[in-house]
Design a protein around this nucleic acid. Structure first.
Length: 501
RNA sequence: GACCCGGUAGCUCAGCUGGUAGAGCAGCGGACUUUUAAUCCGCAGGUCGUGGGUUCGAUGCCCACCCGGGUCACCA
């Protein structure tokens, strides 16, 4: 990677030489503002042939340069697209044209001129005047592209190294308009989520990220030091417990879209900080949330893509109704042959070892079951599937299932082989909650570092009375992957976590 | 964390069984007033990820480390 050495590279030196030449020619190479009349796309749209072709003022980055002696063609790109520029010595005047060779790919330029069409029909600005707005002292990896005979477009010398793309996202975005489009879509997704929930009477709230005690999920936290209080604080792993406190407080429908932080590994599906939607609805149970979840996902996908079909792992997945609803235990029996209701820890560990996993019977039953599920079931959940009724020991914040107390009223949404959402009928019996926390604390004492801890204040809140409530957590990054067809979470997070350079 | 693959010019890549590196694009100089991967002529550009080792000689082989990607394991 460049940029760590002391001096400028020869290419950079050439640009600095031009910078000095411009300065000594009286040009200010870093301007203060430029008033434009059109974007590139607007200019192309309004262009007409003939004498009344409109005069435009455009600003953008130089992304192509073709010098022909006393004439030069260039392409200027802004957020809307690109447009061709035509500099002519006799049209611009000798003095102004003399500055054209001092331009480089990547420079920001403001241009004024009348639109015309070239012989090949491309809308082009006949530049009557231009201003350098910002000199690019470092060469951008601007690739080239050309149409192939089969109609597709061939790209040459594109920025391809994923490390550089993530570390220097500014360069990636500057050079790849299609990368910018992914993040525009991401914003459209969160807008659509907000619109959907606002329409249903949900209140958007913000709860602490910096917490004296973490909870609401089974995960290891990041720990930080709060000097004023001389105490360790945690970056939240979930919004859950705070949002349900608000339900106790009488905010009947609340949601939050925010960052959670989990001190776990990173891969295609996991970034240590990620964006989660959580919403809670009083007087609802998990069947209401199933309806809400389906409607939410389908509406977001439809608003952003215009259809019901998304790409998961490169394959199309139809999100049209109905979505499959199937029991967790049933699925596990179907795929693994194990009846988890009857299997003890030794049998579960043996089943895991059969499948090549290191497992031993000292792990908690819940954890063994969950591993077996992850191994045998998850990868097969291609189409949208609501997996229902999890073992209760995996779900310390969910109500027992009516008529089947070994299970919890909980579902997870799977699409494309990965988990997208998690929901339950929220446990609102404070004594039961206290007992569940105590059981978790015992697992923690036995060495499970993801076990949840007793939260006395949360139990106190429940003691004031929480109405029956349905809650949902949905991974916004993963939803974005689905909607954009991206295969890695790093391609939908602007600045994914990386090792320090 | 384990395993596999990779790191060579600004970018994309080549480099045979070890003989101190090549191409295209970008850059620089020249020609060119409707080109569009512009073209043509010429030039320059590299601690071959880092540090050791083997060897007369290492980009290539061996070891360690750094960084990334993929797969698996755990988590959303």
């Amino acid at each position: 990677m460049s940029g760590r050495s002391d001096g400028p590279s020869p290419v950079e030196q050439a640009r600095r030489d031009k910078l000095e030449a411009l300065r000594s020619g009286g040009v200010t190479p870093f301007a203060y503002r430029f008033v434009r009349t059109h974007t590139a796309a607007e200019a192309v749209a309004v262009s007409r042939d003939g004498a009344d072709a409109p005069e435009v003022a455009l600003a953008g980055r130089v992304v192509g340069l073709r010098s022909h002696g006393k004439a030069t063609f260039a392409h200027l790109a802004d957020a809307s697209g690109r447009i061709q520029l035509y500099f002519r010595s006799d049209h611009l005047g000798h003095a102004a044209y003399a500055l054209v060779p001092l331009l480089d790919l990547g420079d920001h330029l403001g241009v004024r001129g009348r639109l015309f069409r070239t012989r090949t029909g491309e809308v082009t600005v006949r530049v009557g005047g231009f201003e350098l707005l910002a000199k690019a002292l470092r060469p951008l990896p601007l690739g080239k592209s050309a149409p192939r005979p089969d109609g597709t477009v061939a790209h040459y010398s594109e920025l391809a190294d994923p490390e550089v793309r993530y570390r220097q996202r500014y360069a990636d975005l500057a050079v790849h308009p299609e990368r910018r489009a992914v993040f525009e879509r991401r914003a459209a997704i969160t807008r659509a989520i907000r619109r959907f929930l606002d329409d249903r009477g949900f209140l958007e709230v913000e709860t602490p990220i910096l917490q004296p005690q973490y909870g609401g999920a089974s995960a290891r936290p990041f720990v930080t030091r709060y000097h004023a209080l001389d105490a360790d604080f945690y970056l939240r792993i979930a919004d859950e417990l705070y949002l349900k406190r608000l339900i106790v407080g009488g905010l009947e429908r609340v949601y939050e879209i925010g960052k959670d932080f989990r001190n776990e590994g990173m891969d295609r599906l996991h970034n240590p900080e990620f964006t989660m939607l959580e919403c809670y609805q009083a007087y609802a149970d998990y069947t209401d949330i199933m309806e809400l979840c389906e409607a939410l996902v389908r509406r977001v996908v439809r608003e952003v893509t215009g259809g019901d079909v998304v790409l998961a792992r490169g394959r199309p997945v139809d999100l049209g109704p109905p979505w499959r609803r199937v029991g967790y235990v049933e699925l596990l029996a179907e795929r693994s042959g194990m009846d988890v209701g009857r299997s003890d820890r030794a049998a579960l560990a043996a089943a895991l070892r059969e499948r090549g996993l290191e497992a031993d019977a000292s792990q908690s039953r819940g954890r063994l079951i969950d591993q077996l599920f992850g191994l045998t079931v998850e990868p097969h959940l291609e189409g949208p599937t609501l997996v229902l009724d999890y073992p209760i020991e995996l779900s310390p914040l969910a109500k027992p299932k009516r008529g089947a107390p070994a299970l919890a009223e909980r579902f997870e949404l799977y699409i494309g082989g990965y988990e997208l959402a998690n929901a339950f009928s929220e446990l609102n019996d404070p004594d039961d909650q206290r007992a569940r926390f105590a059981a978790q604390a015992a697992l923690g004492a036995a060495g499970d570092d993801r076990a949840q801890a007793m939260d006395e204040d949360y139990v106190r809140a429940l003691e004031y009375g929480m109405p029956p409530t349905g809650g949902l957590g949905l991974g916004v990054d993963r939803l974005t992957m689905l909607v954009t067809g991206e295969r890695s979470i790093r391609d939908v997070v602007l600045f994914p976590a990386l090792r320090p350079e």
